[in-house]
Write a protein that binds this DNA or RNA. Sequence first.
DNA 1: TGGAATGATGTTTTT
DNA 2: CATCATTCCA
Length: 783
Amino acid sequence: MEFLNELNEAQRAAATHVDGPMMVIAGAGSGKTRVLTYRIAYLIERGVDPFSILALTFTNKAAREMKERIGKVIGESEAKNIWMGTFHSVFARILRSEAERINYTRNFTIYDTADSRSLIKDIIKGLNLDDKVYKPASVQARISGAKNNLIDATGYADHPEIQSEDAQAGRPHIATIYQHYESRCFRAQAMDFDDLLFKMNILLRDFPDLLYKYQSKFAYLMVDEYQDTNFAQYLIIKQLAAQRENICVVGDDAQSIYGFRGANIENILNFKHDFKAVKTVKLEQNYRSTRAIVEAANSVIAHNKDQIPKSVWTENGDGRRIQINRHYTDNEEGRHVATRIFDMHHQQQVPFKDFAILYRTNAQSRAFEESLRKLNLPYRIYGGTSFYQRKEIKDLIAYFRLVANPRDDEAFKRVVNYPARGIGKSTMDKLIIEAGERNAALWDVVTDESMPPTTLSGAPLKKLRDFTNMIRRFMADMDRMAADELALEIAKHSGLVSELYRDKTPEGVARYDNIQELLNGVQAFAEQAREADPDARPTLGDFLLDVALLTDADQDDDDLNKVAMMTIHAAKGLEFKHVSIVGLEENLFPSQMAMQSRADLEEERRLFYVALTRAEETCALSFAQTRYRFGQVISAEPSRFIEEIDEQYVEYSNAKAAKPTPFAGGASFEQARKQWKQMPSAGGDTAKAFGRLADKAAPKPAAERPFQRSSTGGKLKRVDPIGDGGALPDLQEGTLVSHERFGKGKIVKLEGAAPNTKATVFFPEAGTKQLLLKFAKLTVIEE
DNA sequence: TGGAATGATGTTTTT
DNA sequence: CATCATTCCA
């Protein structure tokens, strides 16, 4: 097994460990995936049956990659038999085959976050509770938290601590909502994401034969990213491993970033107590990054109190310091990052795929998207509003869902009147009330001939029945047709395709294309299944199971040479040669939600650690002093995390320092840092875009002032992102100007001295506005 | 009943 | 600024 020679001593010790519990503490970039891969290969070469290996990863992508890599070592045909996937997808598969034990159909629906929130909203309304007090999102979070800790609705109501928490928060009825939620999900034969873990636990708890079955089946367990498991996941693992104790967990407490989802670092700390004679291996040598990056990351994480002591080190070269860039606006930040990529690509032939832009929140992607597009740089955004969240896709999938499981109330409500069938709100309200009274699914109320709805009759009832009859026809075809065939049939005969085809606006065409793409996706899925097993008859239900747990990040990376943009969470486990971490501002990163508690702040810091350690060669940080948020310009201060980096690994690119050579340190540098710190910023308070003065803001030196084209047209004159007033010398009363939002207008009055000049402008389209030149992006229009 | 227009409202991170 | 939800009118 010569592949073992590619491993260092610690890695090899981990990869060749066969029986008994093992915990691998793997620092960032220490070759953990390689170890997991080779360990599986090693097991199989030693004669372990691939079918008896269960490897749980955090993302589908990680699972796929690992499978591929194992395939290269031991051959694809063996590799494909390994049980490998995310917790959710593996247990969804098991639940599907054991569904009847818990009185579910094997075609149960998986409710996504939106479905479950809409159901919760519904329940809150039905209980006549105030949705200002019972905010659906927080109720959902509360229920989710309970499920992750294996507390059901009854347990929730009986839990003194939880009850007093809710009472104190003024929301004593969450227990009731939870009870309804539970029964409504069951009524609809639906499980939410948390249920996949919760019900798996139920299976193992209530059916000893099943526990035994899966304990015997999975002789070897491996869990990646163990630090991110929550209690529900932990207990499944623990139970499955209880018999043979052949369990290997891999994790890094420093990279635990899913606390908000119930992940519990304790799981990693307690592993030693749960199993006896645990072999522990620490992987501390980093192969990924330069020394500057490794040390910078180390210096940051050292600020955390809670951690397992370990020292990540590298033999790699020093590399370039972490570059820090200050910007006046978020748009300028976008331009700068894009320009840097442009330059490096053209001057040093760096391929696009070597770049990544990482941010804290999805909303930040916009500025970068725009700038990259302007420079014609190819990019790909991972996550965010994924393909599967688009309205038209959800609509068609809702049809699929309904055909697979007609009791799926959320799907029913979504498409019963789309395309329009004359089934309006009042009809649906009656139906929903009646379903509630009978505790039956909407579908059952409509189709139960023996007990017709009492409040509905005549035309409305007929329309509803026409709809269910149509779905019934699809259902009848489910046995005859393969997934791809049926999908096409549904798309056509539901009227959805023709509805979209009629819409010739650019958006409509895009939607139509998306539907096409989804249908192609079903086809690809079916063909792949047939390829793997010629006798397989992939059903629409199989496809749904797959698609419900897919994320955008899992989409096929066919055309790969693109700049990658994603949240730091999504970047976990990935690496890039050149990384830009953007938006390093207080209240953004760290997030303002995390400012309250030390634990939350430490999680943010670990997130920053994860971000830094994605980089192989260079890492640039940036922040803006003003940023659009909620449609307002707000000012921001640099993130505390920047200062936490040991300064010998940092360079402040646009402070006026000479470019220091790596690690030169020295007085000139200190000075630059000081200078940079003293640079005036707009202060911490929110300043309205067109309102109050932010007198502390200093004008930018004219030489640095960039030009930019106004989006509303008008000939390019000059634009001033910070707007210091003096920048538009030929402004006077009567001048025609153009504003991004308000369109063209005429200056009526100018008052105040620069930089606080205020202009009164009359916009024919928007009325008279008072604008502070400092902030308003005005362009002079030449006659 | 359906659609358009208007107004309130909210943003972490993900399976 | 977006999206959503509610409202209002045909």
